[in-house]
């Protein structure tokens, strides 16, 4: 069967360095010009296209990339990924409203908080077998949301309002409806994340994760410190989720516990699986489609989640490895991270 992923990778591998740079730049240019489009076809019925592109699409892409490290690369089923997103967003919300720090200063703090939470959760949970991990992480996601809901000091059910926008840079002002600027900012974060994941995947860590995903016991018996690498995957995934949370809060300027339900975790998981676990490009594609589509198909309004669920079932039955499955070809991983 024709495999788009292999076809694309084939072109990539046959090309020399200059061509690769050109391809990469072209792809970035296309991505960057997305918010300049906006004909009637792309318009979504309720929200404006530019805003949909920032949220959910760009945020979903970031989160899906992060969750992909955990699920796609290492095979750890995390059903509470929203927790890290929430922690990032609340860090932004609290520090942004209560201190004078701006978004860029809070970003590393939010990431650190999410990583720390990942560590706290990971150390007990990653000793357990996969199915238990799923339920523990799911519980963790709920705990974070319930805590936010019941702590009145951080807004309780009302959430946090009046979160500041990021400061103006190069004379560009982040106003609420300057979707293009937000999108380009998020695009930079997406590129950084892709760079990080590609770097890691072709090296030692990538192989360790791969061996854990395929046969953890064999990996352990072959001397792979599986626990250490699982923690790393978990914490790195958390860091990306935390970053997404900070960015999200700096865009919507209002957060409440309702934004961080289990449905978010499941949606992001669906992005990863739908697109193709373990393959960055597949995951991005999945996040773009699932981020954009539910808004676009509002015309079947009430039934759109139902359709969404049915699509997941069909998809798993027809293409269980996703739209762009992970590498299946007989070729060693590329020698160096050329991205």
């Amino acid at each position: 069967m024709f495999n788009l992923r292999d076809w694309g990778a084939g072109i990539w591998e046959r090309s020399g360095r200059p061509v690769r740079v050109l391809i990469a730049l072209g792809a970035i240019a296309i991505a960057a010009s997305l918010p300049l489009l906006g004909g009637t076809f792309l318009k979504t019925p309720i929200a404006d296209y530019g805003s949909v592109l920032v949220f959910p699409v760009a945020i979903f892409v970031i989160m899906a990339l992060g969750l992909n490290i955990v699920i796609g690369k290492s095979g750890l089923l995390d059903l509470g990924y929203v927790a890290f997103f929430a922690i990032g967003a609340y860090t932004m919300g609290i520090l942004g409203t209560k201190t004078g720090l701006n978004s860029w200063e809070i970003l590393p703090i939010g990431i650190a908080m999410a990583m720390f939470a990942g560590l706290i959760l990971g150390v007990p949970a990653l000793r357990l077998r996969g199915d238990y991990l799923a339920i523990i992480t799911l519980g963790f996601g709920e705990i974070v949301r319930i805590t936010a809901l019941n702590l009145n000091s951080i807004g309780g059910a009302n959430g946090i309002v009046g979160i500041p926008t990021p400061p103006t840079i190069f004379g560009l002002e982040y106003t609420f409806d300057n979707h293009r600027l937000y999108f380009w900012t998020f695009l930079i974060i997406i590129l950084l994340t892709i760079w990080m994941i590609r770097r890691l995947s072709v090296r030692r860590a990538g192989r360790a994760w791969e061996s854990i995903r395929q046969d953890e016991d064999a990996a352990e018996l072959m001397g792979v410190p599986t626990f250490k690498y699982k923690i790393w995957a978990f914490v790195l995934g958390a860091s990306v989720g935390g970053a997404a949370g900070v960015l999200y809060a700096s865009k919507t300027l209002f957060i409440s516990p309702d934004n961080f339900t289990l449905q978010v975790s499941i949606l992001i998981l669906a992005c990863v699986v739908f697109g193709g676990m373990g393959n960055i490009w597949g995951v991005i594609l999945g996040a773009v489609i699932l981020g954009y589509l539910p808004d676009r198909i509002r015309f079947i309004s009430d039934a759109r989640l139902l359709v969404f669920g049915a699509v997941l079932v069909l998809m798993m039955n027809l293409r269980p490895d996703g739209l762009l499955p992970r590498k299946k070809r007989e070729k060693a991983l590329p020698e160096k991270g050329q991205s």
């Binding site: 192989r207 791969e210 061996s211 395929q214 046969d215 792979v224 299946k328 070729k331």
Partner: peptide
Amino acid sequence: RLWGDMTALENVITATDT
């Protein structure tokens, strides 16, 4: 119990270096 989706070489490197 090899790691089926890795190449032969990767199977050995993983044991060597991780």
